[in-house]
């Protein structure tokens, strides 16, 4: 499998590390129910079959964290952007 890093071009998947779903956002640590929110942030994930926006780290390349849109059924990658560019 290859991933098109926006900085480095199409590279072998072995250059990257996968983290998981990119959609959860780190909760406000000051919120009154912070523990519950952090529990969901750390542990709870939708196990999506289909379009998935996920985080990959180009560790053996430019070290950018990337937001990748990949279909978990077919592995077809629709888009790859640096995470900073999408937020």
């Amino acid at each position: 499998m290859r991933i098109a890093c926006p900085h480095c071009g199409l590279r072998d998947v072995r250059e990257f590390t996968y983290l998981g779903d990119a959609t959860p956002e780190r909760p406000d640590p000051q919120a009154p129910d912070a523990v519950d929110r952090f529990n969901a942030y750390v542990y709870m994930r939708d196990n999506t079959a289909g379009a998935h926006r996920e985080l990959w780290y180009h560790g053996a390349g430019c070290q950018a964290w990337l937001a990748v849109e990949r279909n978990t059924r077919t592995h077809v990658i629709a888009a790859v952007r640096s995470y900073k560019a999408t937020s």
């Binding site: 780190r26 985080l55 780290y57 560790g59 070290q63 950018a64 964290w65 640096s82 900073k84 937020s87």
Partner: peptide
């Protein structure tokens, strides 16, 4: 070493750019 470095990049690029 490598894991911490990756973690630092995550914190900087994703959490606190």
């Amino acid at each position: 070493a490598v894991r911490v470095f990756q973690h630092m990049h995550f914190c900087h690029q994703v959490l606190w750019p």
